[in-house]
Amino acid sequence: MIELVGVRKSFEGRTVLDGVSLSLDRGETFVIIGMSGTGKTVTLKHIAGLLDPDGGDVFIGGVKMNGAAEDVKERLRMKMGIVFQSGALINWLTVFDNIALPLVERRLLPAADIEAIVDEKLRLLGLSEAKYKMPGELSGGMKKRVCLARVLVRNPEIILYDEPTAGLDPVMSRTINNLIRQMKRDFGVTSMVVTHDMHSAYDIADRIAMLYNGSIIQCDVPERIKDSDNPIVRQFVRGMVEGPIVVE
């Protein structure tokens, strides 16, 4: 469903991705872990076609995303949604209007149907009370849930999550994890999740990959990641201060 082949990306001479290759099957939940600034979000943006790699290729459903014409990228993006770390809500629209935005813009449904769909997602994510609030009135966690609702109304085949549980309380984190599993179970959604939250990663992942110095150093099922022999992976997943990872 998603395939990255030798993807390289540098910003102002600094290499962020150095030949990253990975492949996700349809309906798989794939988690990327790694230190801050190791290119996890950059990887997601390559998959969404928001960044083009300096080298290598990105394929979505067998179609090459990088370097594709804008209409091809648009067609591929129709299949996917991103839950942004900050929520990325349009600040002059209410919660309702933010969630309805992709449906309103696509103009395929009448207003009453759009309202029903949005109300359903608001209920699902415990946001009914916030329906007419502005983004500025929401907490970080609520913004993230509104962003997730905005993704869900489009029924995407692929959902990319950027730190979906960061800043959420444990109950809401569990709710989001359940939702990610439910999307996979009920709708066969393919998910790629970038996170630092190892509890969440073990909870939802079919496979976990660790990104370090621009490369994937281990990609395996959660159990093997948990008991990894790789000292870098072991230090990271156990949150140890001592080890090969040096915090500058």
Partner: peptide, 10 residues
Amino acid sequence: EEIDALQVMS
């Protein structure tokens, strides 16, 4: 990332 969000929503 609001501009990115718009682009992903086509």
